[in-house]
Amino acid sequence: MTKAFLTGVALGALLLAPAAASAAPPGETIFADNCAACHQASGKGVPGAFPALAGNKFVLGAPAPVISTILNGRGGMPAFKSELTDLQLAQVTSYIRSGWGNKAAVVTPAQVIGVRNSTQAMAEQRGLQAH
């Protein structure tokens, strides 16, 4: 194994370190961690697979359906109801509504709680086993 790789291993350990040191706003960090693999850091998505969020009418529209989609997943997108807190969900929803030139109202944790309740999207403990 190369020395470069060992250095990389040390960096890998840092990947899980708390994001406190990061200067980026929390919504952007949450997006980078949880969403960017599919929707891309540019918000442009992957055509034919993952929709662009930049300039997306649905994202810029009424907040409740957007929050519900992130909580519950939809058509290929996973549910984040168990992965993120109400505050984190509010921050990341606000980020996608204001990033890449998007201009829509920010979302509050109270709105997230409201949609959690109305769609029965409570956090569940992750199982240890799947298939």
Binding site: F5, G8, V9, A10, L11, G12, A13, L15, L16, A32, D33, N34, C35, A36, A37, C38, P78, A79, F80, S82, E83, L84, R126, A130
Partner: peptide
């Protein structure tokens, strides 16, 4: 791994994914 935590690690390059797995 599944769900959001899988999405997060998949954003890394294959080499970084391996570094992450080995470090953990």
């Amino acid at each position: 791994s599944f769900g959001g935590e899988a999405a997060r690690i998949s954003a890394l390059s294959p080499e970084k994914r391996a570094q992450f797995a080995v470090a953990q």
